[in-house]
């Protein structure tokens, strides 16, 4: 009995938190599609999420592509299958590593910043001030971030795909002795639209999850600086876990036979 009680309490708390997140999400989505829409705020968030995340996502992608080519070479050389390296690099980057790593990097950079900003607004009564100024906080704070996350992450991932493949190309061509033209031809011959599209769908979902968790934890933060700190941590951790969970389900949706 003493073991079951805390288990039951934890389960009920989990259900309560899930319900809160579902309610928050439906309210936020309804404000994304109902006027008034704030183009200026959406644009600002797009720059924040897309433009300012580009260096960190680009660096992650290029080194991932380079490491992937090197590791594939050391592994495949045992089976004399070095010619498969361009195929492995492009499929790994477009299907998995591009969207997942970009999602995790954006969760760390943008999700944390959103939770901290909205959390600070909560504890300093700025969100109450929005309400009293007849401005719905969901519409003003949450909806622009969700729209920007949903639209900008696929663009970031598309760029990350190109940079990642380029990383593999550089290492293969200048270190591993591949013919650059053949490498590119193999890459383009092997990659299918579905590889890229599945990655972009993942990116859209991850962008939504990162911004949703940032907004949710920030909006519900309590108790001053400590509460804002906890909200920031929770936003990053929950977004990262959700990215990995949803990555599996989307992969199964696209590729399971």
């Amino acid at each position: 009995m003493p073991i079951l009680q805390p288990l039951g309490r934890t389960f009920l708390l989990f259900l309560e938190a899930t319900g809160r997140i579902v309610l928050f999400t439906t309210t936020a989505l309804s404000h994304c599609v109902r006027p008034p829409i704030y183009p200026r705020l959406i644009g600002r968030q797009m720059i924040e999420i897309g433009y300012y995340s580009l260096p960190v996502v680009g660096l992650t992608a290029i080194f991932t592509g380079m490491v992937l080519a090197l590791q594939s070479y050391t592994g495949f050389a045992r089976f004399s299958a070095e010619s498969a390296i361009p195929n492995v690099v492009v499929v790994s980057i477009t299907r998995e590593l591009g969207p997942v790593l970009a999602g995790l990097m954006v969760a760390g950079r943008v999700g944390a910043a959103m939770a901290a900003e909205i959390g600070t607004m909560r504890v300093t009564e700025q969100i109450d001030a929005l309400d009293t100024l007849a401005t719905n906080p969901f519409k003003y704070l949450v909806a622009p971030r969700l729209i920007a996350g949903l639209t900008m992450l696929p663009i970031l991932v598309l760029i990350a795909d190109i940079i990642g493949v380029f990383g593999g190309y550089v290492v293969s061509g200048y270190k591993l002795g591949f013919n650059p033209a053949t490498y590119l031809k193999n890459t383009l011959d092997f990659v299918e639209p579905q590889d890229v599209i599945s990655g972009l769908v993942k990116a859209g979902v991850f962008g939504f999850l990162v911004t949703l968790m940032g907004c949710y934890h920030g909006y519900n933060s309590r108790g001053g600086a400590q509460g804002v700190g906890a909200a920031t941590t929770n936003a990053v951790v929950s977004a990262s876990i959700l990215i990995l969970c949803f990555n599996y389900f989307i992969t199964e949706m696209f590729f399971a036979r």
Partner: peptide, 15 residues
């Protein structure tokens, strides 16, 4: 709320 104006304790200005 369009009828209301509010001065918050710490002003609650948008940073």
């Amino acid at each position: 709320r369009r009828k209301f104006g509010m001065l918050f304790q710490n002003a609650a200005l948008f940073d």
